[in-house]
Design a protein around this nucleic acid. Structure first.
Lengths: 328, 328
DNA sequence: TTGTAGGCGTTATCAC
DNA sequence: GTGATAACGCCTACAA
């Protein structure tokens, strides 16, 4: 049988209501008693019964995360970081990779207190959802009825360009998805163009448009690029995967990084450090992102009446070994 | 306020214990009463309170799925199918992409009734786990203390070879991970070799060893292969991703599939139908796999004393458009 | 066939 | 400070 507060009570010789208070760190119980109870509880391997707790509290202290498209590794990292961030709270998280509606059904059944939604198709996020939730990266519309956490993609790209410009680069290419309805991708591209313009530089466009966000997209885009007469001195990769492909393509063609071409990647995740050459990158650090998202849902859960905001997080540039001085 | 069985009781004019029985489809309640109660329940939007239920039942009817490495899309498909399979049961599933120990901690907290573990490193699966669980694809050791569901990889490959042989192929290459400790990969390779031997065919090895299981691994392996003098008339791709890369490499080199080279892929998932050319494939259909896994945990949960078995599922070949007659 | 009552593990509200 | 005790929503003997 599993151990309950009653068991602890009989062992410590106090009433179980006192045990309950002690376990909840109530100030209504003497320090000595509390310490002893806690000790015994640990000794007996006490594990609170969530069901009982939520039955009386009317709260599960669980939030559900809906993540319908598991492909992107960046998001996987974000999920892991979110799990981590929840560790510092009283809440737990459960995860669903099902489509929105199915996932929501599950979460309703589990009676979660709130949800986090990853979904890049904004239109699918039903504004009529009654449960507190925040969405990540769906800031397409300016006004939302729910909090949105997003990275400032434009600022990211501008920061990347500036970094390269400071290193003397003039021929800077952006390798990413250009022709798309995906707002996120468009914003990155906008940021790149804007920054180039501000520095009176010519964008280096056509040759490095990718077909997607995957490894191979970066790989083949850059392979095509290298066949051209003029090469850039620096490339900005639009995603972790794209940049991996770029790096590989460069190496296959014996282009030295960063000597011949500098490379900087979007997505600020720890894995960037483990690439064949540790990758300089730009973006909101994934742990910061996670932190913000978690804070945001919890806040929303505890103060649902508060106004919803679209929060764009500022990017950070992490210098590693793929960026160097321009050679022309 | 949410609706409870008491509310239903007062509306229908019966006691709430009768409602409870009706809701649980007990034979102790008259059909008419039952029907009416069910109807009212639906009308009122009754949703059973899991917490209350599990408090008395001492069961959560939830199983946890531990999936520490989210990369493989095949596994993602499997997870989705498992979720689906649970729909036909009273159980629900929660998912964790955390490392085993963290995930188990979470699941202990949620007091799941059992677990499904995806983990290819067998040694990490602690046999001392007290909770009922099954693992997928960890059949390295012959004897396990827990049920293991696995695909028969050897049989898969043999079936693939046989299919090609029937189409007249003699020069059959296998593109996959060869030098690895990964039991699963080794078994596939064994199966290939075994089948080739049985048909007195020469394996077509060295040139198509991949470095991993990814898209690019298939792509570059085949690119190298095509530089050789002698080409195979058929290639067996070791995974969904590998085969995708192979197909692309073939197309880039203007090799027609299946006219010039036939292609058959390991992994039997629906996505195979959506590739540039619908892909003939071999493997245990992912829905069958899911079904088996779910049945297995539930069985284990309900009859924990029963002996554990390693179950190797038989593969199915799905013919699509990448395999044709040999041209020499 | 239906209703009554006790209990599941916890929190919360009172007395003491 | 501490201890009874009543909920929370549901299930399940057992009584009617």
């Amino acid at each position: 049988m599993t151990v309950t507060i009653k068991d602890i009570a009989s062992v410590t010789g106090v009433s179980y209501s006192t045990v309950s208070k002690a376990l909840n760190d109530s100030p209504l119980v003497k320090e000595v008693t509390k310490r002893k109870i806690l000790e015994v509880a640990k000794e007996m391997g006490y594990e609170p019964n969530l069901a009982a707790k939520q039955l009386v509290r009317k709260k599960t202290e669980v939030v559900g995360l809906i993540w319908p498209t598991i492909e992107r590794i960046v998001l996987a990292t974000l999920v892991t970081n979110i799990t981590q961030a929840f560790k510092d709270t009283r809440y737990s998280m459960i995860l669903s990779i099902d489509p929105m509606d199915t996932a929501m059904e599950t979460f309703r059944k589990f009676q979660v207190d709130g949800m986090i939604i990853f979904e890049d198709d904004h239109s699918k996020v039903n504004e009529e959802i009654t449960m507190p939730f925040v969405s990540y990266g769906v800031s397409g519309k300016k006004h939302a009825n729910h909090p949105v956490i997003d990275a400032n993609h434009e600022a990211s790209m501008m920061k990347a360009v500036e970094h390269l410009v400071k290193l003397g680069h003039k021929h800077i290419a952006y390798a990413g998805l250009l022709q798309t309805k995906d707002q996120l991708q468009l914003e990155k591209y906008q940021g790149y163009k804007k920054a180039m313009k501000e520095h009176s530089l010519e964008p280096f466009i056509k040759e490095v448009e990718t077909e997607g966000l995957d490894w191979f997209d970066g790989y083949s885009a850059v392979k095509t690029l290298l066949e051209e007469q003029e090469r850039p001195t620096a490339i900005i990769g639009g995603s972790y995967d794209i940049s991996g492909g770029i790096l590989r393509a460069l190496q296959e063609q014996n282009v030295e990084v960063p000597k011949d071409i500098s490379l900087i990647s979007y997505d600020n995740i720890p894995q960037m450090a483990n690439m064949e050459i540790p990758m300089t990158c730009i973006g909101v650090p994934v742990d910061v992102l996670a932190q913000e998202i978690v804070e945001s849902v919890l806040h929303r859960i505890e103060a649902p009446e508060k106004e919803a905001t679209v929060k764009k997080l500022a990017p950070t540039l992490v210098e590693r070994e793929t960026c160097g001085k321009a050679n022309r």
